[in-house]
């Protein structure tokens, strides 16, 4: 009976885990660790002066009792004294996550998510003058920069396009909050959803640091013996062709 109960219990918990696109407060640990560590006490939610943070209820699908925010409604305004991170008793929000190499926490090191632009609904990409996200960004001209491009439709104007710098973007979502189109053309996504990963097969030869990765190569060739002869034999093997 205990086994059956445990199975049912376990299934229920896997069912009510947070959606992939849940955004967490600044300083949150990675998804797995956060899920382990969060006490569900809501002290971060209470510490937030802008009412940005919400505590997920049973029906929110954000992980019951855990804090999250929805930037189109209220974004994170990036308090320089990070009250939410400091309020956490269990370590699910950790100042270490906000600390750079100098070990001094700064809200600018937050990595709550990454803003992503949908060009087709961004009127700046259409050629209409709009720099709402660029100007609202707390890290203006750094997390979002403007790129100029000839507007071929008129031939004499410029398209001034916002472009996101993923190294800098904190995922605060103020851009998503201020975007002027009906459904925001710029969204904050959890970083692991928004970002790709190159892996070890490609290296920037023009970047000295990146070239060092060759030395750290850990991938081993599949065939450890470099058995060339058997490979040639395999290629010349015509038996299968005439099998019928």
């Amino acid at each position: 009976m205990a086994g059956g109960g445990g199975l049912l219990w376990g299934t229920a918990i896997t069912e009510i885990r947070a959606e992939e696109i849940t955004l967490r407060p600044p300083g949150a640990l990675d998804k797995e660790s956060f899920q382990k560590a969060c006490m569900k006490c809501g002290q971060c939610v209470e510490a937030c002066p802008y009412d940005t943070l919400l505590l997920a209820t049973f029906s929110d699908n954000k992980g019951i009792g855990t804090p999250y925010f929805e930037p189109r409604a209220i974004p994170c305004y990036m308090c320089t004294n990070y009250p939410c991170t400091e309020a956490c008793p269990s370590g699910a929000l950790d100042l270490k996550e906000l600390s750079g190499e100098d070990h001094i926490p700064s809200i600018n090191n937050a990595k709550m998510g990454l803003a992503v632009i949908h060009r087709e609904s961004c009127i700046a990409y259409w050629g209409i003058q709009c720099d709402a996200c660029y100007r609202a960004c707390p890290l203006m001209d750094s997390a979002i920069v403007l790129e100029y491009e000839t507007n071929y439709q008129t031939g004499k104007h410029a398209n001034i396009k916002p472009v996101i710098n993923s190294d800098i973007c904190t995922g605060c979502g103020i851009c998503e909050h201020v975007c002027v189109v009906e459904k925001s053309a710029i969204h904050v996504l959890p970083r692991e959803l928004a970002m790709g990963e190159v892996g070890n097969h490609y290296i920037k030869s023009w970047d000295e640091n990146d070239e060092l990765r060759i030395n750290n190569k850990t991938d081993k060739p599949e065939d450890k013996n470099d058995d060339i002869e058997s490979a040639i034999e395999y290629l010349n093997d015509t038996n299968d062709l005439f099998a019928e």
């Binding site: 797995e32 569900k40 009792g65």
Partner: peptide, 17 residues
């Protein structure tokens, strides 16, 4: 059981329900 499940599911199991 809550403690055992917490270990296997990597989330506080009783707190979740």
């Amino acid at each position: 059981l809550g403690i055992i499940l917490s270990f296997f599911l990597a989330t506080p199991a009783f707190e979740a329900i």
